[in-house]
């Protein structure tokens, strides 16, 4: 019985971690859908959101600092796009990817410089970090709240993309960049909106993530970032429901592996999964097949 509740607890943690990955993965998948770019800096934007919270909550009450953090994260995400990706729009894809790696390098180095490289402890947000006990299972509110919040945000986002004019424009841009431009869609605005949504969700994800693992480090963004990217590939890059499903699968599997005592391999598992997916079904679970044209 004890064993069972242990596994249920791990499963719940997995679902919660999956929800956090999902929020990050959406940023990857949307940017990839539109720009065909792996935004390597996305994980570092997630890290920056963590530091914003550390500094904002030091002097401001929570009901101001949380919106402020989200706003700053969005501004950071959009400025990265404007400064580092926009000038390279006509360049080969490899150049933009290198630019993304450069931004990631810059953000990490800047965070190390600004914070002195020391780990900072994340502020506790009351209520959601409280512990609750259901039957024999002990968990915190955050574990239960994360998947619910994630699903709510995702449903909202899918509705936005499906039913609004802006969403239609986004779909058009991701289908065909040039034609969409000819149809009078302002590409740059759409790209900015994509980055706004992606960074906003990364900000929410960071609040949930760091409430659970309350240490912020300059290099902490890399691993969740890569895992979220794998989730996006697993679900079929460009597809939002795919990214969410992929993120939950990865989150749950990772925690099962940890529960079985193979913690060293919990990170490696993600990449094994990636390579397997790419061999068996390169377009992912929900991805569209693309044919190569000469």
């Amino acid at each position: 019985m004890d064993n069972l509740s242990y596994y249920i607890q791990q499963l719940l943690t997995g679902v919660s971690v999956g929800g956090q990955y999902a929020l990050i993965a959406i940023g990857y998948t949307m940017v990839y859908g539109i720009l065909r770019l792996i935004n390597f800096a996305h994980g570092d934007i997630f890290m920056a959101a963590g530091f914003f919270m550390v500094y904002a909550s030091a002097s401001l009450p929570l009901y101001i600092s949380i919106p402020l953090v989200l706003l700053l994260t969005v501004i950071l995400g959009v400025s990265v796009e404007r400064i580092a990706y926009k000038p390279l729009r006509q360049a080969p894809r490899m150049s933009i990817m290198i630019s993304a790696i450069g931004v990631s390098y810059l953000l990490q180095n800047f965070a190390t410089y600004y914070t002195g490289g020391l780990p900072r402890s994340y502020p506790t947000i009351p209520f959601i970090s409280e512990i609750i006990t259901i039957g024999t299972v002990t968990t915190s509110w955050i574990t239960l709240l994360t998947p619910v919040l994630t699903l709510a945000l995702v449903i909202g986002l899918v509705a936005l993309i499906k039913y609004t004019k802006m969403g239609m424009a986004m779909r058009a841009v991701s289908k065909d960049f040039e034609t969409a431009q000819l149809m009078g869609i302002k590409i740059n605005n759409i790209i900015s909106i994509t980055f706004i949504i992606g960074s906003f969700l990364a900000g929410v994800g960071s609040i949930l993530f760091f409430t659970k693992y309350p240490t912020v480090l300059p290099t902490i963004g890399a691993m969740p970032g890569l895992k979220a990217f794998v989730a996006a590939v697993f679900g079929g890059i460009g597809s939002i429901p795919g990214a969410v499903v992929g993120a939950f699968v990865i989150g749950i599997c990772e925690n099962i592996i940890k529960a079985m005592g193979y913690t060293t391999f919990s990170d490696a598992f993600t990449f094994v999964l990636l390579i397997l997916v790419l061999i068996v079904r390169p377009s992912g679970l929900f991805g569209e097949k693309s044919t190569e044209k000469v």
Partner: peptide
């Protein structure tokens, strides 16, 4: 291109 980049990165990990 990009899939190769991520897969090789994953291999290193």
């Amino acid at each position: 291109s990009d899939y190769l980049a991520i897969a090789t990165l994953g291999f290193a990990e």
